[in-house]
Design a protein around this nucleic acid. Structure first.
Lengths: 149, 149
DNA sequence: TCTCAATGGTTACAAATGAAACCAATTTGG
DNA sequence: CCAAATTGGTTTCATTTGTAACCATTGAGA
């Protein structure tokens, strides 16, 4: 009989791995500042780029627009970002971190980098290359097939 | 200023990749039979092992016990599995697929395998090895650090 | 110019999820 | 032998999520 071994099935392994890593990493932003993942990504996007619109945020961090909308609303509520309406197109809002938001971002960046570094430190040089290149290759493959639509 | 490039940040990349793959794959079980991911994993576990308890299912497929509980309840409702109480320990129930459940499983296994095959077919030989070995290495690393607790 | 489609973003609603409390049965240790 | 801790599994409740509908604004074509 034809059987599927779940433990070796790539989609499952990938998901479980990402979930475990993400769960561990969430301590950096959740325990420390009570952020959700969408909120953390929003913070990260704005910290990295300075000013972005909600749509750009969604594209950069692969979030559904409702997630972005809610994350932005929450960060605005706790005064970590402000919105400024676009002059030309009144549908658009430009989002920028406040001092407080930027401070939080600056505090988290080293923690994030340390997390990644320590994660990769558990691997050999070859294994590090494998995971990084493997992920890049799959990303590229998915990107390609998306364009074919 | 210290900046984090989200696009290169491994936890983010991993999560986004797994999410994309999982979303695509979900068509196999969602569109076809209206299953949720926990239901699919339950089906896959039972199809693979014949008979399992809810706890075993949770361990094998990395699901929280409430997910298992609900998935099992749903599969039972649509008569894809049956529970048989354990003789020695009356807390335990042994779960087994019915004919209908097994039929659905048999139908999905080739589709799942085809999905994985086609996904990997978009990569070169070296890239395939990289992703598989890289994932295995990270899994092992996480497994190790879990034991150290 | 006027209509209709598209776009930026929010909201309403239903479904999925996680944490914690819970129940029942079992094991442990005194 | 019995109280307390543990275990298998379910349920409740609050939170998160996705889908789809929605509002306002802009763009494109007749």
């Amino acid at each position: 009989m034809d059987v599927l071994e779940l433990e070796s099935f790539l989609p499952y392994r990938l998901y479980r791995l990402a979930d475990a890593v993400s769960r561990e990493f969430s301590r950096v932003y959740k325990d420390r500042h009570g952020l959700t993942r969408p909120e953390w990504r929003t913070l990260a996007g704005l910290g990295q780029h300075g000013t972005m619109t909600a749509t750009e945020l969604g594209e950069q961090s692969a979030m559904h627009k409702t997630k972005v909308s809610r994350a932005v609303a929450e960060l605005e509520r706790c005064r970590w970002l402000i919105r400024t309406p676009d002059e030309k197109d009144r549908r658009v809002e430009h989002l920028t971190l406040t001092k407080a938001g930027l401070a939080a971002y600056r505090e988290m960046v080293p923690l994030a980098k340390a997390f990644e570094r320590e994660l990769l430190a558990r691997l050999s040089t070859g294994e590090r290359a494998a995971i990084v290149n493997g992920v890049a290759a799959l990303e590229a493959a998915l990107g390609r097939s998306k364009k074919e639509l």
